[in-house]
Computed example of a mutant assay.
Amino acid sequence: MITPLALRSEAESLSSALPPLLAEAEQLAATVLLGDHGRRRAGTGDTFWQYRPAQDTDEARSIDWRRSARSDTNFVQDKEWQIAQSILLWVDQTAAMSFTSDKNLASKGHRARTIALATAILLIRGGERVGLTGLRLPPKRGEQQLAQMAALLAEDSDKDFGAPEAQGMLPHSRALFISDFLGDIEPTRDALFKAADRGVRGALLQILDPQEEAFPFDGRTIFQSMSGTMQHETLKAGDLKSRYLDRLAQRKEDLQSLARMTGWQFQTHHTNTAPNTALMWIYGALERRI
């Protein structure tokens, strides 16, 4: 039997890594005026969408007792407008995102997680349901949801590059993908097309370190992936600059084209700029109805 003391000790141990991320996200969220974005919507209709098992965050009055009487589980009716209020996030947590060119700059991954969690804070406190893609965390409201999201976002992956996960996205909901999008573009293409097929609209936020835009390398240089699994050595790094910058520009153009085709929005954010600019852009992008 678990004693209260042991349970508290385990909980404190589990949450010890969370306050810094949550605190930073809270501070970032506080810099954005909610305005119209933060109001609770009454919805655009009460068309029945589906039955789903009741969750702890559901009010008793929302339970469909007639449907629940036919089983041992309580059920709630999801309305069409409630689905539209669900936002699912995917944040790249792979090794490539741990890169930073300057110790005084946040890594791409830290900036991505902070912006994602700040977005979730504002959305949940504005009455939205927020979760993570890939069935990792179904969309819900409440402070407990934020704590669970922070715990999952604190995890790292040892893969070199990330791939957006489209599984678990509800029809006609919204989504936010945050990554450097420098790996294989095909998984991103597939995820966006699957999302579009379900009527999901959203935003792609590309996060880059300023060094990745400038390519300030010359002479003998060894390029190595953050996981250490890939390496390339050259004696004339300066000769690679124009080709690299052309490929980076092409990648941005491809992402912009994908977003345009699927009804999403695309933006690039740099770690040497204020994160609240990206947060405000996300709000505008998620609010657009296409």
Rank of each mutant, 00 (worst) to 15 (best):
A163R: 07
P164H: 01
P164N: 02
P164L: 02
E165N: 13
E165C: 12
Q167H: 12
Q167C: 12
G168L: 02
M169D: 05
M169R: 14
L170V: 14
L170N: 09
P171R: 01
H172K: 13
R174Q: 08
R174M: 04
A175E: 09
A175M: 15
L176T: 03
L176V: 10
I178T: 06
I178L: 10
S179K: 05
F181V: 00
F181T: 00
F181I: 01
F181M: 05
G183W: 02
G183C: 03
G183K: 06
D184N: 06
D184M: 00
I185A: 10
I185L: 15
E186F: 10
P187L: 05
P187W: 01
T188R: 14
D190C: 15
D190K: 14
L192I: 06
A196C: 08
D197E: 15
R198Y: 08
G199M: 12
G199T: 07
V200L: 08
V200C: 08
V200A: 09
R201L: 09
G202N: 07
A203P: 07
A203K: 05
A203W: 02
A203Y: 03
L204R: 00
L205F: 03
Q206R: 09
Q206I: 02
L208E: 06
L208P: 00
P210N: 09
P210T: 11
P210K: 10
Q211L: 15
E212Y: 05
A214N: 13
A214S: 12
F215C: 00
P216M: 00
P216A: 02
F217C: 04
F217E: 05
D218T: 15
D218Y: 13
R220G: 03
T221Y: 09
I222D: 14
I222Y: 11
F223N: 01
F223L: 01
F223Y: 03
F223E: 01
Q224F: 04
M226D: 07
M226P: 05
M226I: 10
M226T: 12
M226R: 15
S227D: 12
S227M: 02
S227T: 04
G228Y: 07
G228W: 07
G228C: 08
T229S: 14
M230H: 14
M230W: 13
Q231P: 08
H232V: 11
E233N: 06
L235R: 05
K236T: 14
K236L: 15
G238D: 08
G238M: 07
S242T: 12
R243V: 12
Y244L: 03
L245K: 10
L245D: 04
L245T: 10
L248I: 05
L248S: 05
Q250P: 02
Q250K: 10
K252I: 13
E253C: 10
E253L: 11
D254G: 07
L255D: 04
L255W: 05
L255M: 06
Q256L: 15
Q256W: 15
S257T: 13
